[in-house]
Every structure is written in structure tokens, then in C-alpha cells.
Design a protein around this nucleic acid. Structure first.
Lengths: 339, 339
DNA sequence: CTGAAAGCGCTTACAG
DNA sequence: CTGAAAGCGCTTACAG
């Protein structure tokens, strides 16, 4: 049913290769008589010709489509990054296929295969697989990809990340300096390096001040509000609960606030909270949460730009790791002792 | 560089059509000797063969990809619906390309063309174009699509919607019954039918109780937190401000709360608020907002199911409009007079 | 049971 | 300036 080059060619009384040349006006080298050029364009418009990208890409070996694999697009942390990537992609004539790994390594593995079958030109991913094997394969095939947020130790590749250890360290230090002695940490799956680094930052800060690391003060959750709520309830229901919480994830922070309300605790008087939280509503939380906030737009922009560079370079030996700055945003969920 | 059927065929010493038959094991009709079958499969695995979907789809005229065009994926209202659609799509072997129209009609128009060039099998869309012309064209071409959230009057097509007028009417009525007399409405672009219906529901409720409709109590905003904040500031800074606000959008509700905090007003004592808000954090807002809440998962599920039905039916004469129920969720942002 | 061939819709060197 | 042809990687009726 769709209109093809052949249809236009027939109607114009020329060969379809001529039509193709006219419609790919990129090369002004190709001289085509103004008369036929105009006629072809007119007919194409009249018939509302839309080139079949499937055929075009099969020929060109490029799809102008990139893949984006995230843990969960419904988490505003990721959806805002995704939006930023999409804006950049659009500016550059690329389309984005977004997929959710749901933090399931096997699923992520399949999604990568699927996207490659779909002939994406490149991939941006927050990897959740336990080892970088598959990415090693991709690199061997010279397939362009960049990591975002998460990456692997001892596996050098393009990545946009933040200083997770430093951020968690500083946040914990802030709590210590404000006289907290019983500080707990609610964190995500430690096999993801960014979670592990944040947890380590927390632990190292405690150690730096010669405080003990109490296992019962470390609660592992998965990426969800309900899991965060559950984790916080567990932590806060102990006989000697902590006076401060460091929550190292977006949704977990919301879950923690829910738990606190459920227990009818006062924040920050009963318990101080610092969250890794980039919710657009953080200002209207009760109370507004002191956060480590991430430059979401910039993460997306840089990830896309880095992918473009990777796609256009011949060999993928050059590797860039970009560490972006976060902001410590003081709000009302922490007792203010000294600043 | 990629492995093709030809590569496998050569290594197995058979014709590539045989390889294709083996790898498309759908038809058990095709009898192939167990011996060659096994050898081919082994070689395919060894070479890590990934079929080229580009070529496959060009031949088959199906891509197992659907398009999803939303105003803004970074709005959690839409990202949660998108996630639900993606889950259904995955179950059925489909991939989703998500695009953002940013509520710009021309952009939406282009995106639809783009996705069709990419040969999507079907489209789910929250349309923002002012008229349904382009969709009329799609229907003439027998291209399968379904509307979601928004639709057009006098344009019959498949759609998943809610009773916007009824919801806004009931919310306004609730405020009236709780003794509010000065009720304002903060709403989105009225050329989108769902915004118009919500505004009409508000107006009709006032009229039903013989209250005047005050233009200064109606504030139009676009889909963003900052716009909602600005709109609420305008409304509330009047000499005789309203005692209650109906906010007919997700992000606008958050913006309204920001404005209220900025003006240091007490909710609900100074002003009651009812929001069309489906933020996962709504429970931890200050105060938790009374909302009209949408069945986001179900919207996604039904939209996908309806699209599948549309894709598989021969003629697209049968049209289904499904109206899903919302919930009135009473929280603490409204003075409770009577229930 | 398997090969040879056509064709999906496009682009582009090769001629002329 | 324009045509004829090859080919991207796949599927599938048509033979045998």
C-alpha cells in the first residue's frame, strides 16, 4: 500500500534511481536537470512519499537509532535522564529505543541481543549484569556503547558517572560533624558498583572517625518505594534505632519517608535523613529532604555526546570516563549543628 | 562483520535457504533431516548468529515494534504508563519506541511520519494536535493506532480514556459540599480535550450549584512544575483569593504545592487542594494531597491489548472506546466538613 | 528433504 | 544528466 520509489518513477517516467538521487539531495555533486527534479519532488509530495527506513538502513548499514537500557523508566531519576538523551538524539536525527532491564541481568543480556538484531547504531546503558563479559564481546565487535551511572571495576570503557564513594562519604561526614553517632545506611543491591561505592563511602566515613560499622545499620533494598519503606521500618524498629539515615537511592528515599510517617517519627528531631534523591517534588516533601542531587540533564547530554564520538571514531581504543559533579543540597530533614 | 545466514550455510555446506528454515523452527511442517538440523544449530550458536531484523522485517513487512508518543516521558504520570505498556509489549514479543511530543503539534506530526518510516506495526499515542486530520489519514491507510488519555470529539477511533468531565465535576462538587464558595481551577492547555473536559466539569459543577464562573479563578498552564507554581501564585495573590483549588494535572499539582509553601499558606486551613495527581510520592507530600488517581498500569495494559486487537483485525471499522474508572482518594489537603 | 530464484525497497558505483 | 544493475540479509513459493 505504501508509496515507493518505483511508484514515483513510473509516474514521472524516469528510472527509480533518478528519483532516489533527487530525494537524497545531500550531494549537490549529482547534477539533475531542474525540470525533472521539480517534477519528481512534486509527485513525491503529492503521493506523500515516506521512504522505507527498513530498506534504506539495510542498504546503508545504519539505522540512526540508538538503544537505551535502563533499570526502570518509571523511576523519575531515569526517566529524566532518558528525556535528556532523547532531546539530544532528536537534535542529531536519531531515534531512541528505550528498554527496561528491571535490574534483571538475564533480561538485560537478552535486550542487548534484541537491540543489536534491530541494528541500533549504538547503545547507552546502566548495566546491571554481574560481570562485563557481554560488553567485552561488544567491544571486540567494535560495537559502540557507553555506560551511564554504573560501570565495572577493571573494565575500561566509555562511561558517564559520578563520584559515588565521595558523595556518600561527605554526606556521612556531614552527619558525623553534626553530632550523629548512630548512623544507618539504606542502600540498593551491592552487586551494582554504584551502590557498592556508596555503601563503601558510608563505611569509610565511619571508619575515618573511628566509629564501628554495625551490620544491623545497613539495610539492602531493591529499587522501589515499597522496598525502601520496608527497609526503613526494619532499621527504625530496632531497640536502639539510629538517629540518622543515609539513603542511597531515589525511590528508597521516598519509601523511607513513608516509613517515618507510618512510625509517626519527627524528621529531623527523631531522625535525620539524607537522600540520594532527584525527585522533582523533593521541595514539597514533608519535610523537604537534604539530598545529593545529580545533574540529570547533563548526564544525558554527555552520555549522548560520548556515544556519538565513540560511533564516529575508527578504533575504539580510546576510552573516556567522565565524572560529573553532584550537589549537596541542604534542606530540612537534617538537624543543623554546624555548617 | 556480523554473521549472516550465508556464513552459516557455507560452514555447514548447505544452501542458505536451508539454514533459514532450520532457524525459523516455527513450522514443523518443514521436514529437515535431524542431522543437518543439529549441525546448523550448532554452528549458529558457535558463531553467535543474530538474525538481522532489518532484512527480516523488510521481507516480512512486520517489525514487531510499536511506537508510543507521549507528551513527556519525564512526567511520572506518563513514564509509569510507558512502563506498563513496555511490560505488555515484552510479553508479546514487541519492542517499543517511545517519543516525546513535548505537546508541540508539529513535532507530533513529524514523529508519526518518522515512526511510520521506521515501519512500526502500530502506534499508541496521547495526541496533542489540534485536529485529527493526520489520524484520519492513518485510518484511511488502515494503519493501526489507539489513542490514550486524550482523543477527539467527533472522531471515532480506538481509545483508552477516563471520565474527565465526571471526575472534575465530582471533585468540585465535593469542595462545594464542604462549604467552599470560592473555588479556582488550575488546568492545562484547553485545546487538549481532556483538559477541556476537566475544566468543563469544574464549570458545570459550579453552574449546577448556581455559583458564578469567575475568569480570574481559571488559570491555564503548560505541563510543568514551574508553570503550575507560577499559575498558583497568580491565582492566590489576588485580593480575594479562592479557598479551594482544583488542579487538573500531575505536575501542576506539585507546582501548586510549591507556590503554597512559598506564600506560607496553610493547607488545608487557608486553602484546600484537590489534584489530578498520580505521583508515587504523593503520600509524603506536605500535606498529602487529595487526588483523583488514575489506574496507570491498567491504562497501559488496555492500550496495548486494544492495539493488538486493532492490528489483528482485517478492517478497522470496529471502534472501541474504553472508559476506565479513577479513584477519589481523600487525603489531608482538603478540609473535611461532611463525607 | 533441500536447492535455486525471486523479491522486500532502497543506494550507489559503473557506464554512457 | 540518467539508466541498468548489483546487492544489503532475509523468507518462501516453486521445483525436484
Amino acid at each position: 500500500v505504501a508509496v515507493t520509489l518505483k511508484d514515483i518513477a513510473e509516474q514521472a517516467g524516469v528510472h527509480l534511481s533518478t528519483v532516489s538521487r533527487v530525494l537524497n539531495r545531500k550531494r549537490p555533486l549529482q547534477r539533475i536537470s531542474e525540470r525533472t527534479r521539480l517534477r519528481i519532488i512534486e509527485i513525491a509530495n503529492e503521493l506523500n512519499y515516506q521512504p522505507n527506513e527498513m530498506a534504506r538502513c539495510l542498504r546503508l548499514k545504519r539505522t540512526f537509532t540508538i538503544g537505551l537500557i535502563l533499570p526502570d523508566i518509571s523511576n523519575s531519576f531515569f526517566s529524566r535522564i532518558a528525556r535528556s538523551i532523547e532531546i539530544e538524539a532528536e537534535k542529531n536525527g536519531y531515534t531512541v529505543i528505550i528498554c527496561n532491564s528491571a535490574e534483571v541481568p538475564e533480561k538485560e543480556h537478552q535486550l542487548i541481543d534484541l537491540l543489536i538484531q534491530k541494528c541500533i547504531d549504538g547503545l547507552i546503558i546502566t548495566p546491571v549484569q554481574r560481570t562485563p563479559e557481554q560488553f567485552e564481546q561488544l567491544r571486540l565487535k567494535n560495537f559502540p556503547f557507553v555506560f551511564m551511572i554504573n560501570h565495572y571495576e577493571n573494565f575500561k570503557t566509555n562511561a558517564i558517572i559520578t563520584d559515588n564513594h565521595g558523595d556518600a562519604f561527605k554526606a556521612t561526614q556531614y552527619l558525623i560533624q553534626n553530632d550523629h553517632r548512630r548512623i544507618a545506611c539504606i542502600h540498593g543491591r551491592p552487586d551494582l558498583i554504584f551502590n557498592r561505592q556508596r555503601l563503601a563511602g558510608y563505611q569509610d566515613a565511619l571508619s575515618a572517625y573511628q566509629f564501628p560499622i554495625i551490620p544491623a545499620f545497613q539495610q539492602e533494598c531493591d529499587f522501589s518505594v515499597s522496598s525502601g519503606c520496608q527497609g526503613a521500618l526494619t532499621i527504625l524498629s530496632q531497640p536502639e534505632p539510629p538517629t540518622a539515615l543515609l539513603v542511597t537511592d531515589n525511590l528508597l528515599t521516598i519509601g523511607t519517608l513513608k516509613a517515618v510517617h507510618q512510625l509517626e517519627l519527627n524528621v529531623p528531631d527523631d531522625v535525620s535523613i539524607i537522600g540520594f534523591c532527584d525527585d522533582p517534588a523533593v521541595d514539597v516533601f514533608n519535610p523537604p529532604i537534604t539530598t545529593i542531587s545529580h545533574p540529570l540533564d547533563e548526564i544525558g547530554q554527555q552520555a549522548f555526546a560520548l556515544l556519538m564520538r565513540t560511533m564516529h571514531q575508527k578504533n575504539n581504543q580510546d576510552v573516556t570516563k567522565i565524572v560529573l559533579d553532584t550537589k549537596f543540597h541542604l534542606r530540612e530533614s537534617t538537624t543543623i549543628w554546624e555548617v
